[in-house]
Design a protein around this nucleic acid. Structure first.
Length: 248
DNA sequence: ATTCATGTTGTGAT
DNA sequence: TATCACAACATGAA
């Protein structure tokens, strides 16, 4: 689940803000019983984290690769955390849940969250620039630099910019580097709009596609970079910049 | 039936 | 000390 999806989840939780948790259940071991009878104070997101405050306890959920959630419906298995309110219920499945003891601002830098109002492109630009040896496909997945960007956004951004995934940051021009930052931000918000209308999947241009929408060429897919995440790309559109050949 | 994937974190080796 | 490979976790679609 990528950053934009977390923002949608946060919005879906709005009816429960200010409501009391009537019943709580789940596998989570953070001491969820203490939530019972307490009020859901607020919900925030940072990157792929959902951060909730119930009573005076702050905690976060992360859905990792397989996590999901359901609101006002449930699966036939126990959730990691279920919260029941007077006006409905929320279920988190396969979620990694942790208590947050520190002040939020000390652990979350809002400037790097692609979905945050406090996103700061010039700051992110600096962070990327400080990683000259990194591949662009890896740096896009770095949650300390692009919090909320996941594998789908990564692939689509690289395709939109016609960049080979294994381009080193140091070999990007200033213009390209800036474009990476802007496109990661822009596409994340586009992702959000499409996902909200349930039309995200049909707008994928390269991720999980078999042919390139521009050339009709076969799309390549392989594990790439330090992160070894599956990367879909068009070997033609995203070829390395051609060097000018000298005539013999 | 088997493989693979919207991801992160901890461990032990190098 | 730092980096790295690998394991662990958990689930449903193809």
């Amino acid at each position: 689940m990528e950053g934009p999806s977390l923002v949608i989840l946060r919005q879906e939780l709005k009816p429960f803000i200010g409501k009391k948790v009537l019943r709580v259940s789940g596998y989570s071991t953070i001491g969820i019983k203490a939530f019972e009878g307490q009020q859901l104070k607020w919900a925030k997101t940072w990157g792929k984290h959902l951060i909730l405050k119930i009573g005076n306890i702050t905690f976060r959920t992360h859905f990792l690769l397989f996590g999901t959630y359901l609101i006002n419906q449930q699966k036939d298995r126990k959730a990691t955390l279920t919260l029941e309110f007077e006006n409905g219920d929320v279920h988190f499945y396969s979620a990694a849940i942790r208590l947050i003891e520190e002040p939020l601002d000390t652990i979350y830098d809002w400037r790097v969250d692609v979905m945050s109002r406090r996103w700061d492109s010039s700051y992110v630009f600096q962070l990327v620039q400080a990683k000259p040896a990194a591949y662009v496909c890896d740096v896009l997945l770095d949650q300390q630099i692009f919090a909320g960007v996941g594998n789908i956004i990564k692939c689509e951004v690289l395709f939109n910019l016609k960049l080979p995934p294994l381009t080193k940051v140091s070999s990007l021009t200033m213009r390209e580097l800036k474009a990476v930052v802007e496109e990661a931000h822009r596409y994340s918000h586009q992702f959000y709009k499409w996902k909200k209308k349930f039309v995200l999947r049909k707008h994928w241009r390269i991720y999980r596609k078999h042919v390139c929408p521009l050339t009709g060429d076969k799309v390549a897919a392989e594990e790439m970079g330090k992160t070894k995440r599956y990367t879909y790309y068009c070997p033609t559109c995203q070829a390395k910049a051609k060097k000018i050949k000298k005539k013999k």
